[in-house]
Structure formats: C-alpha cells, structure tokens
C-alpha cells in the first residue's frame, strides 16, 4: 500500500464520537416512532371515548388520569415536542441552511434544551397553572 501519511485517512466509518447532531438525528426517529404509535393510539382512544358518551369517557378519564399514566404522558409530551422542534430544524436544513459545523451543533443542542424546558413548563401549567 502506497499511502501518503500526510493525507487524512477517510472515511472513518468506524471511528467517530457522538455529537449533538447525531443525538438529535436519532432522537427525531425514536420520538417519531414513539409518538406515531403511542400518541396516535391515545388520540384515537380519547376521540372514540368522547364519541361513545359520558360513561365510556369516564372510563377513559379514569385510566388517563391514573397517576402512573404520567409515566406515559410525560415522555409522550416530551417526544412530541422534541420531534416538532427537531422537525423544524430539519425543515431549515432541507432548505439548505444551517450546515456550518458550529451552527449545526448549536441548533441541535437548542432543540434538546428547549424540548425539556417546554415539557417542564407544560406540566407545571397542567398541575399548577389551571387553578
């Protein structure tokens, strides 16, 4: 093998480290699949219960407001917010903007920070804001 050692070895497909952009990329898929299955199921359940009448709706509410159900609702709401924010980021990248390394990293980080922040605000509002 005649290799000029001053040239970079590329592509390094097996040597890489996690960056925010990779995290956000895979989070977009994971949250999309999660919300696409669990969120859609919850939406159908809620609407069907509402259409069937007060008794069916009461059964739905009993399950939905069960305190352990928060283990579904909180991650689900975060997933929806994260998918929405990273979706907006993808929309900008689809236009062809935001590929500079530092810009890309910054916005990837912002989607994660903002999604956690918005989820906390949402649940604070649900628990304390409605009086």
């Amino acid at each position: 093998m005649h290799r000029n050692p001053s040239r970079p070895l590329s592509p390094h497909l097996t040597i890489w480290k996690w960056g925010p952009h990779m995290l956000v990329s895979i989070l977009h898929r994971v949250t999309g699949v999660g919300v696409g299955i669990a969120g859609a199921a919850a939406l159908v359940w809620w609407l069907l219960a509402a259409s069937e009448g007060a008794t069916a709706y009461a059964t739905f509410l009993e399950w939905a407001t069960w305190e352990w159900a928060l283990l579904i609702w909180i991650p689900l709401s975060w997933g929806l917010i994260q998918h929405t924010l990273s979706g907006l980021r993808h929309m900008v990248m689809d236009i062809g903007a935001g590929y500079e390394l530092s810009t890309n990293k910054t916005w990837a980080n912002i989607t994660v920070v903002a999604s956690v922040l918005l989820t906390v605000l949402l649940w604070l509002y649900i628990f304390y804001g409605r009086g």
Partner: peptide
C-alpha cells in the same frame, strides 16, 4: 386508526 378517529 385514522378512520376510527375521523368517525368519532
């Protein structure tokens, strides 16, 4: 799922 939700 969509059909059930729309009908509801």
């Amino acid at each position: 799922g969509a059909a059930f939700a729309l009908f509801a």
